[in-house]
Design a protein around this nucleic acid. Structure first.
Length: 211
DNA sequence: CTCCCGATAT
DNA sequence: ATATCAGGAG
């Protein structure tokens, strides 16, 4: 076990004490809804997403309902999340693919998921980990990228590379909780603008306190 | 690599 | 005014 891996495990342990049961902040009632909420979360606060999804899912709760909706209707509902044209198109395409190619059910394999419109590795890992309890990888989003760099767990800014490195540093049964805990910590304490190092219990394990 | 894009904090 | 927010497609 490398020195880096030892420190990574200490960080994971400390995070698990801070956030014993880290949950997905995106409200949803099904794997399908979680996938849609995650598509909406690109470059947008989850707080904002959670204001939009209740309206969206009340009108279109299932893949079938969304598949029978329209680009314009979706755009109007999700507009405030930004990138609304792309997101509406992706959500529509995703719903069609689920209905037409997967029998209305969200597939539980990474390879199948990332082929679907609007679903990349990050979203696929969220859906598999949160909705199905499958540790397909580490979720690397803007928070994980920032914190992994600040804590000196990686030097990279490439999501795929960071994921590969973190997967090697931590045992598989910690991937899901580690992802969620890092994201939670990134929102609450180690945020981009003004990281609160003074009240961060991970500061002693961090290479870049106060930077 | 660029583009998509509204809302919010600083 | 500007940076940033649970990214993905072309």
């Amino acid at each position: 076990m490398t020195k880096l891996a030892v420190r990574a495990c200490k960080i994971a342990e400390e995070l698990s004490k801070l956030y014993p049961a880290p949950e997905c902040a995106l409200t949803h009632d099904s794997p399908f809804q979680l996938a849609v909420a995650t598509i909406l979360s690109a470059q947008c606060t989850d707080e904002r997403v959670n204001m939009v999804t209740p309206v969206l899912f009340k009108k279109y709760p299932t893949p079938e309902k969304i598949a029978h909706s329209t680009q314009e209707s979706l755009e109007e509902i999700i507009k405030s999340t930004g990138f609304f044209r792309n997101k509406a198109k992706n959500i529509l395409g995703f719903a069609h693919a689920i209905v037409n190619e997967h029998g209305g059910v969200v597939p539980q394999e990474l390879a199948a998921l990332v082929k679907l419109p609007g679903i990349g590795r990050k979203t696929a890992n969220v859906v598999l980990g949160t909705a199905f309890g499958i540790a397909s990888g580490v979720v690397v989003d803007t928070h994980v990228t920032r914190l992994a760099n600040r804590m000196g767990l990686t030097e990279s800014d490439d999501a795929v590379k960071i994921e590969r490195e973190l997967m090697h540093l931590l045992p598989q049964d910690q991937w899901i909780n580690f992802s969620h805990a890092l994201i939670w910590h990134g929102r609450r304490v180690c945020n981009a603008r003004k990281p609160n190092c003074a009240e961060c219990t991970l500061a002693k394990l961090c290479l870049k306190v106060g930077v």
